[in-house]
Amino acid sequence: MKIIKLIALSGGVLATVLSFSLSAKADNHVFYGLQMEQFEYRAGDESEKLFVWDGDAFVGTDELKLRWQGEGERDLDADINESLENRLVLQTPISDFFDAKAGVRLDTPKGTDRWYGTVGVMGLAPQWFEVDADLFVSEAGDGSARLDVEYEGLITNRLIVTPSVELNAAFSEDREVAVGAGLSSVELGLRLSYDLIDRSVAPYIGVAYERKLGDTADFAKDEGEDYVASFVVVGVRLLF
């Protein structure tokens, strides 16, 4: 079932990409790119081993882009996806530094799947904060929101420290996916990367801290899962 949904999603991506590139074949104003902000191995404080990724890819013009955003956590001991989400959005500029986007999201982790409709904004806030803010409405009718903020601090022009914050909140409880109403989780990260090959390949080390909050934390406790975890991470940032 998950497989079919994923195939449907990726089929959608492929069809859209193809129609984009065909319609714009004659001019050189269509660009594309792939970025993995996080592509890392995580060792937890209770000897959990995880593989985590968070990336996006786009194709399109200055005015309209199709963007895939995907992130997931795979528990390497249990061999299951703790979380797995893929988003497909259309994106267009709404101000000098911000784009609006709208599309769909499909979560296919271990357990219950969910479709979401999503709208959001992403861009560059004053003082160089990279911001991605999204609203979601699930197929079950539950609303949620997410805010991602990241900052790149240059120690040198190649050695870069990147603090990041991700906040999740739900407007109503969705027991099936173990999310309670209110602020549901927070993830903090601090990564130190070195641009090894241009900006394409930048290995990094860092730390990450995840905590579920409120009812969401209680649901995790009820399930006998950890609601808080910290990690040492090793990974590579990719840009192609």
């Binding site: 050189n28 660009f31 594309y32 790119g33 970025q35 601090g153 240059l154 120690i155 040198t156 022009n157 190649r158 241009d198 900006r199 840009l239």
Partner: peptide, 23 residues
Amino acid sequence: GARIMRNLKMMPDYYNRNQRTFG
């Protein structure tokens, strides 16, 4: 040239290695 253009569209400071640092 084509690659430079794409990189700039992806990341406008892709080639700027003269940015101001913590130092």
